[in-house]
């Protein structure tokens, strides 16, 4: 069974209908313009746990949605 994501407009659809949208977060303790630019461009928390992310429903309404997912299990919350 594919991972399923609920689109508020189209309903429950398999992962393959969506494109992934990463939401990089630069932590507050990264200070200085250069350091924050570097962090934003490259560094990632790569969280093992629940993350907030965006998905684009490419094969449906073609709109972005927000979702929470546990990266350890791929469970959508």
């Amino acid at each position: 069974m594919s991972l399923r994501i609920t689109c508020p407009h189209c309903g429950v659809r398999p992962l393959e209908e969506y494109l992934y949208g990463e939401v990089p977060v630069v932590p507050d303790d990264v200070v200085g313009d250069d350091a924050r630019d570097l962090d934003r461009a490259f560094m990632r928390a790569n969280t093992e746990g629940v993350i907030r992310e965006r998905w684009f429903h490419a094969m449906g309404c073609r709109r972005w949605l927000w979702a929470d997912r546990d990266t350890r299990t791929d469970e959508m919350l």
Binding site: M1, S2, P14, L15, E53, R69, R72, D74
Partner: peptide, 13 residues
């Protein structure tokens, strides 16, 4: 897979 994940889930797709 396009999304970052630590899951060993395999899929039919």
């Amino acid at each position: 897979d396009r999304q970052p994940s630590y899951s060993y889930r395999s899929g039919h797709h």
